[in-house]
Design a protein around this nucleic acid. Sequence first.
RNA 1: GGACGGGUGGGUGAGUGGCUAAAACCAGCAGACUGUAAAUCUGCCGCUCCUUGCGGGCUACGGAGGUUCGAAUCCUCCCCCGUCCA
Length: 385
Amino acid sequence: MDFHFEILKTDPSGARLGRLTTPHGVIDTPAFMPVGTAGTVKGLTQQALAELGVQILLGNTYHLYLRPGHERIRQLGGLHRFMSWPGAILTDSGGFQVFSLADLRKVSDDGVVFRSHLDGSEHFLSPEKSIEIQQALGSDIAMAFDECIEYPADHARSAGAVKRTAAWARRCRDYARAPRNDGRSNAEAATNPGQALFGIVQGGTHAGLRRESARQLVDLDFPGYAVGGLAVGEPHALSCDMAAVSTEELPKDRPRYVMGVGFPEQLADYVRCGVDMMDCVLPTRNARNGCLFTSTGRVNIGNAIYADDPRPPDERCSCMVCRTYSRAYLRHLFQANEILASILNSHHNVAFFLDIMSKIRQAIAFGELAEFSSEFHARIEAGEP
RNA sequence: GGACGGGUGGGUGAGUGGCUAAAACCAGCAGACUGUAAAUCUGCCGCUCCUUGCGGGCUACGGAGGUUCGAAUCCUCCCCCGUCCA
């Protein structure tokens, strides 16, 4: 099964209804991808993910390289087989760790020296190394190794990240294509020869730099493009502006992926910027921290007001958790620090995010995305506890 | 009956003269979380008043009394609890 992207319908807003085909299945877009950094979406079994309708999830180069090691995973048949996940996988390049592990790394044009957060040992991650690891993992979509910077970042610093990210993207592409001794390219010899490589737009919150970054990547002709460096502290409206500015420069026939977003009420905003894919740790992380996303807003399930509340977490949700358990029970589990709290909360939150995406797709199909969006916001603002 | 050891805020438990409304942890209450160093982190957690401030008043370290400018800390008696000896 080859990698290709098909657009079924485009909304006047710029939103696209599409279908992305990968070696491990078809993904209906716009899609939300749960994050499974270490070869697991925390709190959810692969079976549960499949039952929830997850078509693609994330893995992480940096984390899997450190533990259990990409060569081990290669030996065991690649990440899909290793974690028994039949669906598609997108691997992040480690670029985000350039940002999030700021205290533990040194960046140069060559690459990044990390001190492992696990044992303090030093490791060097470069564009080539990142692709080597991702090829061993055998993800369906590999991401170029980028330099993700903080917000706010001034023009010079953002320009530096754009330049470096473009240079690194070229090196990623070239490494993937590079021939080996046996005559095959690195990509052909990889665990998943059908792996696609996406470039990542940077540029901070500078529109001009975003455009420039996008054009530089388009010149490298990737099968898909991501917009990175967003949702790192900037206001949401600015984030959307940057996403829109970026996608304007990207080819219409390729999938666009905004990395690391967002809150439930923000997802449609990105979709209206012409975004096809998103991922975020929010549903799973917040679930573990007792925060349930619902159609009427957030529910901090540990709160005392839920102790005697027999209602489901979200009366409009039909997920297994909402069909089965009360707020009172979930509050009890969370208060008692029971593992099941994380499991059930994660289940609901992921179901909720996927349901939003499903409704967004449906809204695009019926030309009602704007209505969907405003109704969604209205319900949250009206929100009852 | 005797000898030791001990009684501290909801709990465990530090604190042996002022820096102590009293460490720390737990429990409790609330908030945060955006390509996961996160089952994490932050704030509050005696009562009360207001001009909400590194603000005022009150109460508090088993009980009562005492020493002292000042006591959870020292002294006296009493009450409880634990261990051991009769």
